[in-house]
Design a binder for these strands. Structure first.
Lengths: 211, 211
DNA sequence: TGGTATACCAGACAAATGTCTGTTATGCTG
DNA sequence: CAGCATAACAGACATTTGTCTGGTATACCA
């Protein structure tokens, strides 16, 4: 193998390993070796060790296929909460059966980043129906991710179970009781009598597929 | 270790391995063993082999940490396109440097489902600045996922690189040339002279974190 | 000229990891 | 009950993978 200018091969190795890792697939030293046609494993190890020292890679010691991308690559974004990626159940028709049955029979699962302090069972996802929240940028067909934990707070966007139907509205709590306010001039504020409405949780994330 | 009802432990093992894999981290047999407190590795292997036979997992033979999720699991919902979950780079300031440098230095990564037919390099994510698209339910602070492939089509929501700044607008192509239309009455349509504007791709997904 | 750094090679070794074979229970079923 | 399937265990073994120690060659610099 001919000797290459300093740093050149190193960069190629980095790009290869990075792309593997982005594909969610940590390569072994020998896989990298084969890819580049090196005749010694040690060549690869030298490069990877150097890359770790440069801070371009991170290694979990004592572990096969233990190379990782440093945090700033793997975390969703600096200001997003760090957490685990978990399959959150996407509920179909909440109206038909009760809410509990809907949780048990999800239409599918959504990979969602949830905080380490929370449990997967605190979350579910729901398809939005109707235009009533379009003023808040929540359109029909959007998917909302809902957190069930905690007591409802005035001003939050919540999912309420009302007459066997789940709806997304902004919650307001006053001395007159509970108000569910749409954010669209064409819709009226709901003032459900006590006992007829259950707050399922608050909306923490929104996803929309376009086209 | 007491014997558990049929299928019960199997499901717990599956959920554990699935969660590891969603985090992008294939566990070794002994890691699973430790997690459940099994006293034999073989117990884990039996479960995993069974899960592969049931089609709930997939295995790359002759390879350490070779268990994977089958393609279809990661599908969020029946009508969503099936694809792989991939870490899409979230770009920071596109304005400052050029676009290519921004791709190389992502601010973070977002786990996004991308179709099998596409490549990870066809995608990037971007934070939305400004109110110009709020009429389309795209608010400042939202994250858009952008597909770079294909030719721009009139009517699509696109990301355009204009004067070293990336903006989200709706594209219209007419005989007068290209128009970038905001969806907010307070903003004007842009008609960039030929050569001054580059369409980076079309918006395929939107995500918003609330509170 | 010698020293030093870098790129790469060679092979032995050790640790991590997957595979196999056989054994002990337990529950179900004919 | 015998037969069978499942859950779990035990330990040996093979393969994959990472680590180490030392060597060759080339470029660069004092």
């Amino acid at each position: 193998m001919p000797k290459t200018p300093p740093g050149q091969t190193r960069n190629r190795v980095f790009r290869f390993v990075r792309d593997c890792l982005l594909r969610g697939d940590s390569p072994s030293l020998r896989e990298v070796q084969r890819h580049f046609g090196f005749r010694a494993v040690e060549t690869v190890r030298a490069h990877l060790t150097a890359l770790v020292e440069e801070g371009r890679l991170v290694k979990e010691p004592g572990r096969a296929r233990g190379y990782r991308l440093p945090k700033r690559f793997s975390s969703p974004a600096p200001d997003w909460p760090t957490g685990r990626l978990q399959p959150v159940p996407l509920l179909g028709e909440v109206a038909a059966g009760g809410f509990e049955e809907a949780i048990e029979n999800p239409e599918g699962n959504l990979p969602v980043e949830i905080p380490d302090s929370r449990d997967l069972s605190d979350y579910f996802a729901l398809r939005v129906r109707g235009e009533s929240m379009s003023g808040a940028g929540i359109l029909p067909g959007d998917t909302v991710i809902v957190e069930r934990r905690g007591t409802p707070v005035s001003g939050q966007i919540v999912v309420a179970l009302l007459e066997e139907e789940a709806t997304v509205k902004r919650l307001h709590l006053g001395q007159d009781g509970m108000e569910l306010r749409p954010e669209n001039p064409g819709f009226d504020t709901l003032r459900p009598p006590p006992g007829t409405c259950r707050i399922l949780g608050r909306v923490v994330e929104l996803r929309r597929q376009i086209r």
